[in-house]
Every structure is written in structure tokens, then in C-alpha cells.
Computed example of a mutant assay.
Amino acid sequence: MIADVLTDAETRMDKAVESAKEDFATVRSGRANPQLFQKVLVDYYGTPTPLAQLASLNVPEARSLIVTPYDKSALKAIEQAIRDIPNLGANPTNDGSIVRITMPELTADRRKEFVKIVRTKGEDAKVRLRGIRRKIKDELDALKNDVGEDELARAEKELDAITRTHVDAIDDALKRKETELLEV
């Protein structure tokens, strides 16, 4: 029983770490990256649809990205959805068949602002991990009548170790992203 609860904790924490890494990828650094547009929803015939389902994304140069829609009638909606992305600073241009996005050079102030955003996302991910830990601890406490106190104490120590490992993984990803953002 305890092993199942701890396995569930590890699985849920792994998902939280992956989610944090995906969140970090959505903050732009100096280069164009298709992951920046991973969570963009386009109003396609009244339905919010992920951009990746409507178009292919190519990076021909370090600071430009080309969006080629599968359906040319979605071109205006794609362009508008990209224009509505907060903190991107890019102005997409539409030539009738593709949308070209040129990423502007980041200023030092803008880089620092992005570092703050990434740190906030990292702290949010750690809060999610602590929430998972709290729920798992409650599940372990519910097993108190079925298992001995020694086993429960060992399980709590193991839960703390699992949590610490995942918090460290988020910190490592955060440091890598900060380094990437501050690199000129």
C-alpha cells in the first residue's frame, strides 16, 4: 500500500516537473523557437484550436519563424492569435500563404523581466510539488491504522526525499533557462 502511494507521488511529481519545463520553454530567449507557440490557441471556426494542429512551424534563421497553415483560410486567425501573445514583442506579417515572424533583439531590461517571469513560473511549480506532497502525506496518514508507525515514518522520509529530488530538478531547469535568457 505504501509503495503504491509513493509510486503515485513520484509519477505526479514527474508530471509537475515536465509541466514546469514546458512552461519555461514558452518564455522566449533570444532565438526563435517553435515551443514558444506550443500553447497558442487559434479561433478556428469558433473553436479554440492549438496552432500546431493548424500549421507547421519552421525556423529558417535564428530570429525568424515561418508558420505555414494547412488551411489558407485560417491565415488571418493564426496571425491574430500570434499578435495576441503577451510578452512576445514580435509582429507577424502575412504574405497570403505564410505568416513570417521576426523576433526582435532582447534588451537587457527585457531579459531581466523574462528572468522574473521564469522565476515566478518556477515558484509556482514548487508550490504544485508541495501540494502533491501534502496530499500524499494525507494519504499516508490515512493508512496509519493499517501499517506500523515505523513504516509510516520511513515512508514520510522517502516522500521528503522524492520531493527534494523533484524540487532540485525544477531548480536545475530554472538555472538553465536563466542562463539562456541572460546570454547575449
Score class of each variant (00 low, 15 high):
residue 1 M to H: 12
residue 2 I to W: 00
residue 3 A to I: 07
residue 5 V to L: 13
residue 7 T to Q: 14
residue 8 D to A: 14
residue 9 A to H: 01
residue 12 R to A: 09
residue 14 D to N: 14
residue 15 K to C: 03
residue 15 K to T: 03
residue 15 K to M: 09
residue 18 E to D: 14
residue 18 E to G: 10
residue 20 A to H: 08
residue 22 E to M: 12
residue 25 A to N: 11
residue 26 T to R: 15
residue 26 T to S: 15
residue 27 V to Y: 03
residue 28 R to A: 12
residue 28 R to Y: 13
residue 29 S to N: 13
residue 29 S to E: 07
residue 30 G to S: 10
residue 32 A to F: 00
residue 34 P to R: 05
residue 36 L to W: 10
residue 38 Q to F: 00
residue 39 K to W: 04
residue 41 L to C: 07
residue 42 V to L: 11
residue 42 V to N: 01
residue 45 Y to G: 03
residue 45 Y to F: 15
residue 45 Y to H: 10
residue 46 G to I: 07
residue 46 G to H: 08
residue 49 T to A: 05
residue 52 A to S: 15
residue 53 Q to G: 02
residue 53 Q to L: 11
residue 55 A to Y: 05
residue 60 P to S: 01
residue 60 P to H: 04
residue 61 E to G: 03
residue 61 E to I: 10
residue 65 L to I: 11
residue 67 V to Y: 03
residue 69 P to D: 08
residue 70 Y to D: 04
residue 74 A to R: 00
residue 76 K to L: 06
residue 77 A to E: 12
residue 78 I to D: 00
residue 78 I to P: 00
residue 79 E to D: 10
residue 79 E to C: 02
residue 79 E to M: 03
residue 80 Q to I: 11
residue 81 A to E: 02
residue 84 D to C: 08
residue 84 D to K: 14
residue 86 P to K: 14
residue 86 P to S: 11
residue 89 G to M: 13
residue 93 T to F: 09
residue 93 T to N: 11
residue 94 N to M: 06
residue 96 G to D: 09
residue 98 I to F: 02
residue 99 V to R: 01
residue 99 V to E: 04
residue 100 R to C: 00
residue 100 R to K: 14
residue 104 P to K: 08
residue 105 E to K: 11
residue 105 E to V: 13
residue 106 L to R: 04
residue 106 L to C: 04
residue 111 R to E: 12
residue 112 K to M: 12
residue 116 K to Q: 13
residue 116 K to R: 14
residue 118 V to H: 02
residue 119 R to Y: 06
residue 120 T to H: 12
residue 124 D to T: 11
residue 124 D to Y: 00
residue 125 A to M: 10
residue 126 K to Y: 08
residue 126 K to V: 12
residue 129 L to A: 08
residue 132 I to M: 05
residue 133 R to T: 10
residue 134 R to H: 13
residue 134 R to C: 09
residue 134 R to P: 10
residue 136 I to T: 15
residue 136 I to H: 01
residue 137 K to G: 07
residue 139 E to T: 11
residue 143 L to E: 11
residue 143 L to R: 09
residue 144 K to F: 11
residue 145 N to L: 12
residue 146 D to V: 09
residue 148 G to M: 07
residue 150 D to E: 15
residue 154 R to C: 02
residue 154 R to E: 13
residue 154 R to A: 13
residue 157 K to Y: 03
residue 159 L to R: 01
residue 160 D to M: 03
residue 160 D to N: 15
residue 163 T to K: 05
residue 163 T to P: 03
residue 163 T to E: 08
residue 163 T to W: 06
residue 163 T to R: 05
residue 164 R to I: 08
residue 166 H to D: 06
residue 166 H to E: 07
residue 166 H to G: 03
residue 167 V to R: 06
residue 169 A to Y: 03
residue 170 I to W: 01
residue 170 I to D: 04
residue 172 D to V: 14
residue 173 A to D: 00
residue 174 L to S: 12
residue 179 T to C: 01
residue 182 L to K: 07
residue 183 E to D: 15
residue 183 E to C: 04
residue 184 V to P: 06
